[in-house]
């Protein structure tokens, strides 16, 4: 119950800062439009909607990292968290309170991107519905990373780190180009990180390759559990050392 109350407050804080929210939802749509125009002028099928849409939606999730990290970082800098720490809420209540409000935003991002992609030529079938579920699971990874950033850094630092993060996740996710086009160490590093597996899981779902999807998704889930657990442990320590 306390987590729900806190989540409602956090949702209001995010939704009432509409510029960042609109940017997080609007940018993926602009990218879908731009790349679909590029595809029309390309001799090979690199940016076809079925191939591009999963990656662009996952790219949009990096804004969930920004939202959760900034909110937690801001609360930490403003003494509000000290007031909340003095209340009977537990560390799990806090973490749930920061995670839950971002799930409807993730769903909204997915919905708006899918509608845009269908408008631009994505073929709709039941695998799209399954992809929505897979994407919701993937969104937890990005929310968890945001919580870790927010726990460790101030809101201003999170803003700077996000600029690096969004580049790392995009280049190493195989959204804009196949990683084996670069190969070598670049590809090896990308395979060690969860971002390419997140995009692959979504792509495999839309292609109906459910075995590949499960393999990639299990790596993403593993990372999500690991990162969220670290966030909770660090958060607990911060609570006690406040």
């Amino acid at each position: 119950m306390r987590a729900i109350v806190f989540a409602a407050r956090n949702q209001k804080e995010i939704v009432r800062d509409p510029v960042t929210l609109l940017f997080g939802i609007g940018l993926p749509i602009v990218l879908l439009g731009l790349f679909s125009v590029m595809q029309k002028n390309m001799p090979f099928a690199l940016y076809e909607m079925n191939n591009l849409t999963p990656g662009v939606i996952v790219f949009g999730f990096s804004f969930l990292t920004l939202f959760s990290g900034m909110l937690l970082g801001k609360d930490k800098s403003s003494s509000l968290l000290m007031r909340i720490f003095a209340s009977p809420m537990s560390a799990t209540d806090y973490i749930l309170g920061y995670m839950l409000p971002l799930l409807p935003i993730a769903l909204l991002q997915i919905f708006i991107c899918l509608v845009t992609a269908i408008f631009l030529g994505l073929s709709f079938d039941k695998s799209i519905l399954l992809m929505v579920l897979v994407l919701m699971i993937i969104s937890l990874l990005y929310i968890g990373i945001g919580l870790l950033f927010g726990t460790l850094f101030t809101d201003k630092q999170v803003g700077g780190i996000f600029a690096i993060f969004v580049n790392v996740t995009t280049w190493l996710s195989g959204t804009w180009f196949e990683l084996d086009m670069v190969g070598g160490t670049f590809q090896s590093i990308a395979q060690l990180l969860p971002f390419v597996h997140a995009v692959n899981a979504a792509k495999a779902t839309i292609d109906g390759a459910y075995g590949d999807m499960l393999q990639s998704l299990s790596i993403v889930i593993g990372y999500t559990v690991f990162i969220t657990s670290i966030s909770i442990i660090v958060f607990r320590r911060k609570m006690q050392a406040n």
């Binding site: 407050r9 209001k12 800062d17 403003s78 003494s79 509000l80 000290m82 007031r83 009977p88």
Partner: peptide, 16 residues
């Protein structure tokens, strides 16, 4: 914690 409350040194309100 259930029976006390605090007004911290810095203003602690939810801005939005």
């Amino acid at each position: 914690k259930q029976i006390l409350n605090i007004s911290p040194q810095e203003t602690a309100v939810a801005p939005n």
